[in-house]
Design a protein around this nucleic acid. Structure first.
Lengths: 334, 334
DNA sequence: TTGTAGGCGTTATCAG
DNA sequence: CTGATAACGCCTACAA
């Protein structure tokens, strides 16, 4: 691998000059510039990133931590991040947190050691306080999927309350009055917000909130299925269900079917997220979309803007959920 | 950020000694070792990876390129890779190739500049020849999802012919004799192999191959749907279909349903891959599983073994497809 | 077993 | 505008 020194010799200039033409900024005589470029081409020279990083104290890397690399939620986000990070000539260092508080801290530590120029984290088990502490520690950090007051300008998130409202409202608009809810883990803000949206929509429509109609799920198929079973067992006569995410909805669908009921004929079902499988469920799931890829892009732009003070903060931080109508919700004949 | 020199001063030893206790191998007096460790702890010292890389010419990173980061196929693979790479204290540099020949080459170049210690590539558009050329270029490269003779010991792949055989055979075992096939893009070896497996199973069962029963798909929902429509239009009386991957199967399912037929009552359907959505389809899709995560792990182990000559080559390179029975295939009453 | 010192490839400072 | 040269932080002969 050729070094800058070899280039400088071949081009008959100093290494400083080579560095200059390669890194732009400073003016260099046209003749020398060309001679350098020629030498670079001839040698196939590529700067050694380690040496450069050592000298500049910049790695050119953006660290990313998500709960689960293989989850349909986060992979969309990563894709969004990658597209903008790479377009800037920077690269991605990824690591997963596996939704464990300890593991998440470990992942952060792990990436921090690699000295990325910025960090983008989508953490589940970590507390707001820890997040605040970490991001104060020198490394520009953007928080994905969570809103923290103290870090307001570094948070990319979606208004889950609005999303919950949207979903519930859609059901109400279709004539439903008795609406059940399969919530997510109450420890998660997302889950609580969606529930809050559900309650508000109910309230706004003059429907009183009935605790018996909401069960706790876990954002996974099993929880959705179990929750639905409990709901069904209570025999409350609900005509529709809002599941806190698509995966719970898929589980709920199974339970409904096992109970001998049909969607949407007997029970209408609405999910949340709009991951790939929502389209494939039968009936295709009406749901509330989270723009994962766009949020990933925004996160990356925010991270990048923290580096080059140039980019002003015109990055969108708050995203809106949008209703995607498919066929799992039926209008109730009144 | 503390440097090794500061540690050495605090511990009252030379930097060399600090380096030694931190990097193992060489013997160091217990007293000094402890004093160094204490100093490290006190200062919260963390070696500067750039300086280290510059000196050792090793980055500690493994580069990974897949077609699409957000695809359910590749994200499983990445997860597998990550788990073993990180367990070795190394990190992951990811980039996507977006299935374009030019883009793939670009991604490789991009990662190569970051000087990972090894590369794991899952490429679609790139030719075998290019792959061979690249991997000869100094950087240990493992090829995922493709078998290339010249790179035999660096390829992790699944026997797709066997998989195609398995799927078709399952249908035959259930009494089906007239079996259609929605193939993948013929440009892809995976697709051709699955088709070959289909043909061989037919042949072994004494069923003659009928060209009219196979249509070209594209490994995506649209292709599966369109292909199924064409098949249905030909009115050939087939009782079952083998789709080259789950996504095509999902599309086919839509078309079958739109045609007023039911799965598996009227037509049995089998997919390939066993991605998440297979379980959620209705009816749940019988399919052939590719162990993505395990393959990713194997790829990582192979990459790692190329670095530390220690690990012998006991890494599994060839994986077997396994049939996952769900409910989209019915036995044919004869 | 330990310390000294040179080198890894760049960038950046500072004279010319 | 250009060229020396000193960092950058660590590893590793080599010598002691």
């Amino acid at each position: 691998m050729a070094t800058i020194k070899e280039v400088s010799q071949l081009a008959k200039v100093s290494v400083a000059t080579v560095s200059r033409v390669l890194n732009g900024r400073v003016p260099v005589t046209e003749a020398k510039r060309e001679s350098v470029l020629a030498a670079v081409a001839q040698l196939g020279y590529q700067p050694n990133v380690f040496a450069r990083s050592l000298a500049t104290n910049r790695s050119g890397g953006i660290g990313v931590i998500v709960n689960e690399l293989s989850s349909p939620y986060y992979s969309g986000v990563i894709q969004g991040i990658e597209s903008v990070v790479e377009a800037q000539g920077m690269h991605l260092l990824v690591s997963s947190g596996h939704a464990g508080r300890h593991l998440e801290a470990q992942a952060v530590e792990f990436l921090r050691q690699r000295r990325p120029d910025a960090l983008i984290v989508q953490l589940e088990a970590t507390s707001d306080a820890d997040l605040i502490a970490w991001s104060g520690h020198g490394l520009p950090t953007v928080v994905l999927g969570r809103y923290i007051d103290a870090l307001a300008d570094r948070c990319i998130h979606l208004d889950n309350l609005k999303g919950g409202y949207l979903a519930t409202r859609h059901l109400i608009d279709r004539g439903h009055r008795c609406i059940a809810h399969i919530a997510g883990k109450p420890a998660l803000k997302d889950a609580r917000d969606r529930l809050a949206g559900y309650r508000r929509a109910l309230h706004d429509a003059g429907i009183s909130y009935d605790e018996a109609l909401v069960v706790e799920g876990d954002f996974m198929e099993e929880g959705g299925q179990a929750g639905m079973q409990r709901l069904l067992a209570r025999d409350l006569g609900f005509t529709s269900v809002f599941a806190a995410n698509d995966q719970s909805a898929a589980g709920a669908l199974l339970a409904i079917r096992a109970h001998g009921l049909r969607v949407p004929d007997d029970i209408s079902l609405i999910g949340y997220d709009d991951v790939l499988l929502a389209r494939y469920l039968f009936p295709a799931l009406t749901t509330v979309r989270q723009p994962f890829v766009e949020m990933g892009q925004a996160a990356a732009m925010l991270a990048l803007s923290a580096l080059s003070a140039g980019d002003s903060k015109e990055v969108r931080r708050q995203f809106d959920p949008v209703l995607i109508e498919r066929t799992s919700v039926a209008a109730l004949q009144s």
